[in-house]
Amino acid sequence: MGIEVNGVIGLLILIADIWAIVNIMSASVSVGSKVLWILIVLLLPVVGLLIWLFAGPRAT
């Protein structure tokens, strides 16, 4: 059962990261900021997502 739970958690994190990247791409900030935020989310999937939620650019 542990493998299935880990798979579901991993899938949820992947979906949340994709959602964050889509929102970052639609934000009205510079291309450099977008690239930096996307790299943070990709390199640190959970921590990067949490940082983006609290401090990242928002789509307007």
Rank of each mutant, 00 (worst) to 15 (best):
M1S: 15
G2T: 07
G2H: 05
G2V: 02
G2D: 11
I3C: 01
E4R: 12
N6G: 03
N6M: 09
N6F: 10
G7L: 02
G7Q: 08
V8G: 00
I9N: 06
I9W: 09
G10F: 01
G10V: 00
L12N: 04
I13H: 10
I13K: 12
I15E: 13
I15F: 14
A16L: 13
A16F: 08
A16D: 06
A16R: 07
A16N: 03
D17V: 00
I18D: 03
I18K: 06
I18Q: 02
I18F: 08
W19S: 12
W19C: 02
A20Q: 00
I21S: 00
V22Q: 08
N23S: 09
N23G: 07
I24D: 00
M25N: 09
S26T: 13
S26H: 08
S26D: 08
S28T: 14
S28A: 15
V29L: 13
V29T: 15
V31K: 09
G32C: 05
G32A: 10
K34F: 04
K34W: 01
L36K: 11
L36N: 07
I38Q: 02
I38H: 07
L39I: 13
I40P: 04
V41L: 03
V41R: 00
L42Q: 01
L42H: 02
L43Y: 10
L43N: 09
L44T: 11
V47W: 14
L49G: 13
L49C: 09
L49D: 07
L50A: 13
L50D: 01
I51T: 09
I51M: 15
I51G: 04
W52R: 03
W52L: 05
L53W: 14
L53S: 12
A55Q: 05
A55P: 04
G56L: 08
G56T: 08
P57A: 06
R58G: 04
R58Q: 15
A59T: 08
T60H: 15
T60Y: 15
